[in-house]
Design a protein around this nucleic acid. Sequence first.
DNA 1: CCAGTATGATTGACACATCAAACACAGGAG
DNA 2: CTCCTGTGTTTGATGTGTCAATCATACTGG
Lengths: 156, 156
Amino acid sequence: MPRPRQLPDRAELRAWRDFIETTEALRTVLAGRLQSDTGLSPGDYAVLLALSEAGPGRMRSSELAAQVGWERSRLSHHLGRMERRHLIRREKAAADSRGAEIILAPAGWTAFREATAPHLRAVRELFVDALTPAQVEAAADIAAALREHLERLGHR
Amino acid sequence: MPRPRQLPDRAELRAWRDFIETTEALRTVLAGRLQSDTGLSPGDYAVLLALSEAGPGRMRSSELAAQVGWERSRLSHHLGRMERRHLIRREKAAADSRGAEIILAPAGWTAFREATAPHLRAVRELFVDALTPAQVEAAADIAAALREHLERLGHR
DNA sequence: CCAGTATGATTGACACATCAAACACAGGAG
DNA sequence: CTCCTGTGTTTGATGTGTCAATCATACTGG
């Protein structure tokens, strides 16, 4: 009795490679634009976005981690670099003094404000303009299906 | 006279975020599997694949760089790490002694051979099985459109 | 009150990526 | 032969990501 096929066929493999390599290239190009337009990395942008969306521009570190979907360690390293550049500050949380409050510094507000438009323009130019409206929808569906599948598989 | 719309609308932006974040997550999960199944990173795998496809398992460094689509500097750093683990060796090129020949070492052959099946299984499980056949095709089309657009835009 | 454990966050070590600078040899003009 | 320039590759500096270990404070059962 034959086991179910386990390996992708030639066409599926080609689709996979094209897909993964292209999205990788897209990420790289977009990151390069953001960097040269604004001096921010995608990580910087994600952090600033999350902070700016929290009304007062301040947030608990773990909340921020959840918001951007990063591990705490990664966030902590990244915040260290951002703090060096005075984009954010850290304070002990008043409520729970184990915790840290991350505060969007003035330079951070400015950088974020000036980055938004160029970033969105680049998204439009590199992603939206490359695809038909139907393809944009299809991309969203594919992403949803992949994510759902990933989550169903759990973490192994 | 109104300029063309420059920024993505809400739905487009959501599609973009879902798309880019999901592909990123997919990459990460796949890399994790490869790592834990075989001890190789995606970069290692790409290099070993390219070398193994060159009949004798040896290739000029710049040819290898072109094959995997990396900058030379990146390749050089990566080869340094792979050499430390005895997956490859480097020799001066006979023809042009500026150049380096990269040689797939025995441990490299073995690692690659043992990595292939698990890797392909993971691709099937995480990508192909998550999508309908039509979606796999759509993904390939989207990748093609994105890549073509990227290339048309050139490098800025 | 006070172990013991749980939780929020940071640290250190290392792999990976990118940029610019350096290095080493090749090949041609004089 | 010697300088000059170009090409193939490496190196160093720095930013980014992951894992495991650590640190500090909070909480809980006795």
